[in-house]
């Protein structure tokens, strides 16, 4: 019981640490929040004019279609932030200090999770408000909309564990660039901006099976926004897969991360 209480207290202390980071670097936080908004404006107004989406009409239809994808993409890109935070602590020796202290060993990941999920909630809110401002709406009721936000956060939670694992494992200076190079194709090889059916055969299949595509598809369905549809089994079961994929990823990367944290070799 006492142990559990300290685990909460230590997790809270490390969450607080991240909030202190935000307070000390407000400009970075704002830039981080505005980046997805910029993507929406860029695709919505610069590129969106020439796009047509089934079930949507013209540029306004494309923007309706764009928001769920960008929301999910933002969750995936959150992986970079998690990775960077964990890796910085490891390379500076801060993680070693934590590990040599009599604190709860769960605190590092609890603090990271809470702080990153808070950041994700703020991020989703800013982007959703921007979406509302340019004409995006949800059409299937508040409960369905909240379920969509829940699935988006679930995806972020899965990315969090991948980020923690990579942050503990990957060494060297160019690591962030390497992770970015990995994350971008994961983000774009999906149904976020284009229909997988228009991609060359095997690429289209990968895009359909991309976990991001499932969350995007599920969010479009729950918000009642236009989407690509698709005849494949994954496309037909987007909501189910938007739960299964993150849970699977967590089931893999959570134990890997815990084992790695316990046996961290410099």
């Amino acid at each position: 019981m006492n142990r559990l209480r300290w685990a909460f207290a230590d997790g809270a202390t490390l969450t607080r640490r991240d909030l202190d980071h935000w307070a000390r670097q407000p400009a970075q936080v704002v830039i981080g929040l505005l980046f997805p908004v910029m993507i929406v404006l860029m695709f919505g107004y610069l590129l969106g004019g020439g796009m047509t989406v089934p079930g949507g009409s013209g540029a306004a239809g494309y923007r309706e279609f764009l928001i769920p994808g960008t929301l999910a993409l933002t969750m995936v890109f959150g992986l970079e932030g998690t990775f960077q935070a964990i890796k910085t602590d490891v390379s500076r020796g801060v993680t070693d200090r934590f590990r040599s202290m009599p604190m709860a060993s769960s605190a590092v990941v609890v603090g990271r999770s809470v702080a990153d999920l808070l950041n994700a909630v703020v991020s989703l809110s800013v982007l959703a408000l921007s979406g509302l401002a340019i004409g995006w709406r949800w059409h299937s009721g508040l409960a369905a909309a909240l379920a969509a936000f829940g699935l988006l956060l679930l995806l972020r939670f899965a990315m969090l564990w991948i980020g923690i694992y990579l942050g503990l494992v990957v060494r060297g200076e160019g690591a962030l660039v390497a992770v970015q190079i990995l994350v971008w194709p994961l983000g774009f090889l999906s149904n976020t901006f284009a229909a997988p059916s228009t991609m060359p055969g095997w690429l289209g299949t990968i895009a359909e099976w991309n976990p991001l595509s499932s969350t995007v598809g599920a969010a479009r369905e729950l918000f009642g926004n236009p989407g690509w549809g698709g005849d494949s089994w994954v496309a037909q079961h987007a909501i189910l897969m938007a739960v299964v994929w993150p849970v699977l990823l967590i089931a893999v990367f959570f134990p890997l991360s815990v084992a790695r944290y316990r046996n961290l070799d410099r």
Binding site: D20, R24, R92, V94, R97
Partner: peptide, 8 residues
Amino acid sequence: HAAVDEIL
């Protein structure tokens, strides 16, 4: 290495 938080 000095194991402290640089931002704080």
